[in-house]
Design a protein around this nucleic acid. Structure first.
Length: 725
DNA sequence: GCGGAGACCCTTTTT
DNA sequence: GGGTCTCCGC
């Protein structure tokens, strides 16, 4: 068979990786060096040149997006569907294993996956049930603790507490949470991985089966693997399999959620006969951008060492903009984008990147003001919306009455007169007899142990669910959803609400019906599950797209974390200030600081042609004004590659804090008693400065000036006696 | 049981 | 600034 098409368009290093004969291989792939390409071509190579059956290949990624991209690219390269091959996320594959081996994994057949919000609610409930002070045992922190333990492969019983009472208490909560999940048939994200790992630990025959089947294991974004994922891979590969991993230690930005960069270093010890190939040629960015990124990342210690190069153009210098405040910053960025569009560029080619989500607001306002379409990544996705989760909880309860998390969520949504008191009674009963909330409610109703009204309300709820379950039994999935929405009165409930938001919620619910009608449950080689369970799992594991309009030509706004893996001709890295980036919480610890630096490196290497850094001299954060200095990361860049866009005293754009009317200073209003925003002025005592904003009228008028020496001051106009410079 | 008013807190995020 | 949570009055 002619396999040259697999190798034709690859460079030497890529080719070396793709057709390597080493048993195991570590590819150190720099940003933009074609790592997905190498993975895809490797799979094609295995199948076409080494005659490996697709059934023998398992390829794992971190996100659904990466998995589906991988699948698509393999299919188009091989020109055939990837049947039999396992391509998916760690969680998706673990889920698949558990669905098949639910008995061996000690799970009910209809177990359901809960997302982190469900998990948070559940933990909150448990902290309360244990009668603990939830300011001392904050559910968020408990959740973090439990997940971190699970990520390390630890169950409550094998955590060493050294008689530390704090730790002991956390372990008690962990245990109680575990008991609840087991009783309710619920599995959280970390649990999927842990269970899948334990399944193999405890069931050697199951493990042997998969070891035999998957002779070739491939891993993307290897630097992001946590302890349990790494252990899982080790077990699967065993003594006879092969592993092929692609990663970049310089792009490890998820240490805070358990990723261990050291895995890249450990792999050569833990997997025998592991070769290494470095991909350093970059096909994305200009020489200048790469040189700057290389300089920045070289400040970090303990790197495996890699230097990106390109044989492309050197390109424009990196621009640095020093804004007066965050509004001036947004204004500048938006102006540059407009310029880019006027020169024939598209909006979709531009990305505004920032460290934290809170920064997006100002940019959104500036874009909205000028009617420029934009898309903000992150935020709630379809299946995470409250109204959708309400609806899904009904479906979950239909599928599994023991699902306490779903029960809690909808027992009084829409309100049907089951309040805190009644629920307290139900919970107490459930705890006492170690039964589900559903069973407890049934017992309470039949015992008639509460007031008539409360008992009635609960009975109505129980009947509703039973009725729903009966009536929708034989229906299609979409009909099930529709009936559920109707009979639960969820639709009616949102219809009665005349607010604009309720309108959107209603549309979302209708969209849920559509989603159900499009959902096709594809039976794999695992044990079949019913369509409803499959749909619910799908909703939890792939929370759906962020809100739409993705095809419209719009400016892309996202955090640096979510930008990983993407590329844009024009990139703005905003808010590059001490305290914000690097973040305040990361500045005290060298390890964290290095991760921030890698984050900056990731951001810079997103840019193909032009890169802007911006920072503000004054920034309103959490409602108070701060005066951050520019980030150390800027200082770490070679000065000859940087060009300051606005030098001191050379004001290009007027600026003003936004008024309640949501308008920016237009040219008309920007003149105030002969002074303009952004104008240089001089004051008898404070010296020279720049006008930041105005407030009030006539003799009440006040003016804010950013003085070069004295900092920012509010002055009463009629006394200030400012002179234009 | 519900909705409004005030207190409180504040990275990054995928599954 | 803004989202979430709690408390209180109806």
């Amino acid at each position: 068979m002619d396999v040259s098409y697999i190798l034709n368009d690859l460079n030497d290093a890529q080719r070396q990786a793709v057709c390597s004969t080493e048993r195991n291989l570590l590819i150190l792939a720099g940003a933009g060096s074609g790592k997905t390409r190498v993975l895809v071509h490797r799979i094609a190579w295995l199948i076409q040149a080494e005659n490996v059956s697709p059934f023998g290949i398992l390829s794992v990624t971190f996100t659904n997006k990466a998995a589906s991209e991988m699948r698509g690219r393999i299919e188009s390269l091989l020109n055939t569907p990837t049947k039999g091959m396992w391509v998916g996320t760690f969680h998706g594959l673990a889920h698949r294993l558990l669905r098949t081996h639910w008995r061996e994994a000690n799970l009910p057949q209809n177990f359901q996956v809960i997302d982190s919000e469900d998990q948070h609610r559940a933990i909150k409930r448990i902290v309360r049930e244990l009668e603990l002070d939830d300011t001392q045992w904050q559910p968020k922190q408990v959740q973090w603790f439990i997940n971190a333990r699970k990520d390390e492969g630890q169950r409550p019983d094998n955590i060493e507490h050294h008689n530390d009472p704090y730790l002991e208490q956390l372990i008690v909560i962990y245990k109680a949470y575990e008991t609840m999940c087991q009783r309710s048939g619920l599995v959280d994200f970390a649990e999927l991985l842990l269970r899948a790992h334990e399944l193999w630990l405890k069931q050697p025959t199951v493990l042997a089966h998969y070891q035999q089947r998957f002779s070739n294991v491939l891993v993307d974004e290897f630097q992001d693997t946590n302890a349990i994922q790494y252990a899982w891979l080790r077990m699967l590969v065993g003594t006879s399999g092969r592993i092929f991993v692609v990663g970049d230690d310089d792009q490890s930005i998820y240490g805070w959620r358990g990723a261990r960069i050291e895995h890249i270093q450990k792999i050569q010890n833990d997997f025998p006969e592991t070769g290494v190939v470095k991909l350093e040629q970059n096909y994305r960015s200009t020489g200048v951008i790469l040189e700057a990124a290389n300089a920045l990342i070289s400040v970090n210690t303990g790197r495996l060492g890699k230097n990106l190069w390109t044989d492309g153009k050197k390109g424009d210098p990196i621009s640095l903009f020093s804004a007066f405040n965050e509004i001036d910053e947004a204004r500048f960025v938006v102006n540059q984008i407009m310029k880019h569009v006027q020169e024939g560029g598209t909006r979709a080619e531009t990305a505004i990147l920032y460290r934290s989500n809170a920064q997006s607001r100002v940019f959104e306002e500036a874009l909205f003001q000028l009617n420029i379409p934009y898309r903000v990544y992150g935020g709630l996705r379809f299946f995470e919306r409250a109204e959708i989760k309400d609806a899904l909880s009904y479906l979950r309860l239909i599928a599994n009455r023991a699902d306490d998390a779903a029960f809690e969520r909808i027992v009084n949504t829409p309100t049907r007169g089951i309040g805190a008191r009644s629920m307290e009674e139900v919970r107490m009963h459930a705890r006492q007899y170690q039964i589900s909330l559903w069973e407890a409610s049934k017992a309470i109703v039949s015992d008639n142990r509460m007031s008539g009204r409360a008992t009635n309300a609960i009975a109505t709820f129980l009947t509703l669910i039973e009725q729903l379950s009966q009536e929708t039994k034989e229906r299609t999935l979409a009909d099930k959803v529709e009936q559920t929405l109707k009979l639960s009165t969820l639709l009616h409930y949102h219809k009665n609400d005349k607010s604009e938001k309720a309108q959107t919620r209603l549309e979302n619910l209708e969209e849920l019906i559509t989603a159900a009608s499009h959902f096709r449950y594809e039976e794999g080689d695992e044990e079949p599950m019913d369509e409803l369970s499959a749909f619910l799992s799908h909703a939890a594991l792939e929370a759906g797209e962020n809100q739409g309009d993705q095809w419209e030509d719009c400016v892309q706004l996202m955090t640096l974390h979510s930008a990983k893996g993407l590329e844009f001709p024009l990139v703005f890295l905003c808010g590059v200030e001490e305290g914000l980036f690097p973040h305040q919480r990361s500045t005290s610890d060298e390890t964290k600081l290095e991760e921030e630096r890698r984050l900056c490196y990731v951001g810079m290497t997103r840019a193909m042609k032009q890169l802007y850094f911006s920072h503000a001299q004054s920034r309103r954060l959490h409602g108070t004004d701060t005066y951050p200095s520019k980030s150390r990361f800027i200082e770490e860049l070679p000065t000859e590659l940087i060009q300051e866009v606005r030098l001191k005293g050379k004001v290009t754009q007027p600026t003003q804090h936004q008024s309640k009317k949501r308008t920016y200073a237009s040219t008309k209003t920007s003149s105030y008693n002969g002074l303009r925003l952004g104008q240089r002025v001089s004051h008898g005592k404070f010296g020279e400065g720049v006008v930041l904003q105005f407030e009030g009228e006539s003799n009440q008028a006040r003016i804010q000036v950013q003085f070069d020496q004295a900092g920012s001051k509010w002055l009463v106009m009629s006394y200030a006696n400012l002179q234009g410079v």
